[in-house]
């Protein structure tokens, strides 16, 4: 009895660890898990109140449809990588609203002219204070806000094409 238990315990531990790693790895490939990421505190909470030049929290709530909010900056190299994915997402009919983080308006405009502008609305957070209320740790960062103004999903870092497709599918459903 004792011996059988000694054999089963390490096997069970290995099995458990294996299942955990499998979940982490499958989450990483589908963009739902980032080992270095910080979970967002906003999930299933109302979007933080803000008023920026461009649009306000009230505008997001009044949109009447889900809004995908993307924090980006012209000085951010991963944002360049992400640009084609966002353009594809907006072509797929997803309402993308951009918030330029700590960026000079002229630089933002040049960035959008060069890499394509996927945003239906653009706000500017030059001091980067509104981003802190959202819990943004770095650009790019993407949030999904439902028509009731509740944040449903967040992705930190450049959106992988798979995650963008999953998001578009979710919004179509």
């Amino acid at each position: 009895m004792n011996r059988r238990w000694l054999l089963a315990a390490p096997l069970a531990a290995a099995g458990l660890a294996g299942a955990g790693f499998w979940r982490m790895l499958s989450g990483m490939s589908s963009g739902n898990f980032d080992p270095r990421g910080v979970p967002s505190m906003l999930i299933d909470k109302p979007l933080p109140d803000f008023a920026l030049p461009g649009f306000t929290a009230a505008d997001v709530r009044a949109a009447g449809h889900p809004v995908v909010i993307n924090f980006f900056a012209s000085w951010c190299a991963p944002c360049i990588d992400e640009a084609p994915t966002l353009v594809a997402l907006s072509r797929a009919g997803v309402a993308l609203w951009g918030i330029a983080y700590k960026d000079k308006p002229a630089a933002t405009d040049a960035f959008l002219a060069r890499h394509g502008n996927p945003f239906t609305r653009l706000a500017r957070d030059e001091p980067g204070v509104v981003a802190i209320d959202w819990g943004v740790t770095g650009v790019p960062e993407t949030y999904l806000v439902d028509p009731k103004g509740i944040v449903r999903w967040r992705f930190s870092g450049p959106l992988p094409i798979e995650a963008a497709q999953a998001l578009a599918g979710r919004l179509r459903a």
Binding site: P39, S40, D133, G135
Partner: peptide, 9 residues
């Protein structure tokens, strides 16, 4: 800060 960034902060 915890309200924005979670206990990770």
């Amino acid at each position: 800060l915890v309200a924005r960034y979670g206990n990770f902060v």
